[in-house]
Amino acid sequence: MKILVTVKEVAEAEDDFEIDGLDIDERYLEYDLNEWDDYAVEEAVTIAEDGDDVEVVSVTIGPERAEETVRMALAKGVDRAIRVWDDDLESADMLDVGTKADILAAVVEEEDPDLVFSGVQANDDGFGATGVALAEVVDMEWGAVVNDLDLDAEGGVAHVHRELEGGVEELTDIELPAVLTIQTGINEPRYASLRGIRQAQRKPLDVQGLGDLGLDASVLESAVSRTAMFEPESESDVTVFEGGAEEEAGQLADLLRDKGVVEG
């Protein structure tokens, strides 16, 4: 069995940041493996450890910088990695959902996995859509926001829980092959061990351009473009307590007493 995990290196804004044109100024961005993808990697690696002959492959669309993140996934037990990038991607403005799905679909077609795991959402652009769009492009079945998975590979079905709103979970049987978008809390992602980190250096990390995947720059044409970025207007007029921790705690204590909160 083969499991393909889509992983994204996401950018997080520092506490204080500046917007430069259509994006946050690079200087204020920090990069990390997307939280949801960390759970997706763990889920795949656990299945591989518990089963016979399960290969876990990760794929990312991202620049060279993302290799650090990809190596982290390899260190956690992914067997080999694919990174899709080339000059055309480098000069593209924004990868919308349809574009990402088309590119990932070309990788799915090449790898022919039984299962694809992606994250529920990428914490930077937060489309929450790439996994399900991919399923449709490659004509696989799917399930979104999966927080429990019981895989019956022989029976060709995944018994999943989908986490709905308000503490309700939906129990669903999904035919394989399928794309599942993984929700946080489904497992406990491991930390990479030192041994894992060393091994990761020797694992294959294959860089492919659009041409290698049988695609060309036309896949990057998109009707969706970002035309502005701004800091949201604050709706509340918040009172900020200042003057150091002691002083602030004192003011907060007065407020709480005023609201009827007393020693418990």
Binding site: D15, E235, S236, A245, A249, L252
Partner: peptide, 29 residues
């Protein structure tokens, strides 16, 4: 983080380290 979105919703805010503020608050009470 003074830019955390919670500030847009909060009526009162302290932009300081919880490990300093919370112990002081416990002692206040």
């Amino acid at each position: 983080d003074p830019n955390a979105p919670i500030n847009d919703l909060a009526d009162y805010a302290i932009h300081d380290d919880l490990f300093d503020v919370v112990p002081a608050l416990i002692e206040e009470f």
